[in-house]
Amino acid sequence: MSESLKTEYQLCEELGRGRFGIVYRCFSPLTGESYACKTIDKTLLLDSTDRECLEKEPKILHLVAGHPNILHLFKIYEDDNYLHLISELCSAGDDLFTRVSRGPLMEPEAAQILKQLVSAISYCHHMGVAHRDIKPDNILFDTRGRLKLADFGSAEWFGMNCESGMMEGIVGTPYYVAPEVLRGREYNEKVDVWSAGVILYIMLSGVPPFFGETSTETFEAVLRGNLRFPHRLFRSVSPEAKDLLRKMICKDVSRRISADQVLRHPWVISGGEIRSMADLT
C-alpha cells in the first residue's frame, strides 16, 4: 500500500472485488468521512489493453467529474505495484443488479432510475466520452438513494481527441453490448443508449431481451436483434414504455435515438406514470 495513502486513510472492510482489484471502505480521520478505495494490482495487468485502460480511467473520471449521477473521484495514489482510487462511498450491496434480481420494477421507479442513468450518459457524451460498459453492476446508489454511474475502465474518447468521432474495439458485457460493437466495425456513442435500453427492458420485465445458454448464443441473439414483448411479461407495461424501448434498442444506429432524445421522450418526462387503465396492453 502507498505510504501516502496509509497516512491519510484507514483501510476498512472489503466491499467487493473484480478481475484486477479490490474495493474497500476507507476512513479519513482528517474529514471524519468514509470513502471507497479501489485498489488495482498493476502486476496482474499483463495485457497492453488492460494497462491502457488503467491509465485512461482516472483521466476520464476527472473529465466527467461534477455530474451528480457519476461516481466522484477524489484522489489517486500510485506506487510501483498498485494504483489506489479514492471515490465517494455508495451503499454496500445496493446496486441496480441487486435491485432487478428481486424482480421487475414499477414504471415510475424504472423511469426515475433511467432518467438519472441517461442524464449521466448524456453528460459523458457531451464531454466526448462513451462509457461502453453500461450494465446494472456498474450502476450504484449512494446513501441518499441517488444513482451513481461507475467503472469507466472500458470508456473511450470519441470527441476532442478523435477526429472521426468513431470508436472501435470489442468491449462490453454479453447481455448489454450493442450489435455494431460485436460486428467489429467502427461505432459511435449510441452504443451506450442501446445498453441503457436493455437495462430498461430488464427493469420492466425481469429478463434481458436477448440471451442464450452461452456467451456465443447470447451474442448471436444480440446480432439478430429481434426485439419482442412477451405478453406474460409486458401485459402491464404501458405503450409509451414499449415505444421508448423500440427507439433505444434499435439495430439501425441512424434510427436509434440519442441520450438527449431519451430524456425528452414523453415516458421519461411523465416519470413513467400511466395515464389511464385504457393505456395498458
Rank of each mutant, 00 (worst) to 15 (best):
L96F: 03
F74G: 07
D80R: 13
F74Y: 15
F97A: 12
I76M: 10
L105W: 01
T98V: 11
D80L: 14
L89H: 00
L73G: 07
G93L: 02
K75A: 13
L96I: 03
L73A: 11
E78P: 04
L83M: 14
E107G: 11
S91C: 10
K75G: 03
D95S: 04
S87E: 11
P108G: 05
L89D: 06
F74S: 08
G103T: 01
P104C: 02
K75F: 08
N81Q: 13
P108N: 05
L85T: 02
M106P: 00
S101C: 09
A92K: 13
I76Y: 03
C90L: 04
S91V: 08
H72D: 05
E107D: 09
D95N: 15
E78W: 09
L89C: 11
D79W: 07
S101H: 12
V100Q: 01
L83D: 06
A92I: 08
M106T: 08
E107T: 09
P108D: 04
L73Q: 05
I86E: 02
R99A: 01
K75R: 15
C90A: 10
G103F: 08
L73C: 13
F74V: 02
D94F: 06
L89Y: 09
R99F: 05
D94C: 13
F74L: 08
R99Q: 09
K75I: 02
P104L: 00
E88I: 09
G93F: 07
T98D: 01
L96W: 00
P108T: 05
S101T: 07
I76C: 11
K75Y: 14
E88P: 14
N81C: 10
I76H: 09
I86T: 06
E88S: 13
L83H: 07
L89K: 04
I76L: 15
L83I: 14
M106L: 11
T98N: 11
D80I: 10
K75T: 12
E88H: 09
E78Q: 15
G93A: 07
E88K: 14
L96K: 06
E78Y: 11
S87T: 15
G103I: 04
L105F: 14
R102Q: 14
G93W: 02
P104W: 01
H84D: 10
S101K: 12
I86S: 03
L83Q: 12
T98F: 02
F97V: 01
C90W: 01
L83T: 14
A92R: 13
H72T: 14
R102M: 04
I86A: 09
A92H: 12
F97G: 03
Y82D: 05
G103S: 05
L85C: 13
H72V: 08
F74C: 03
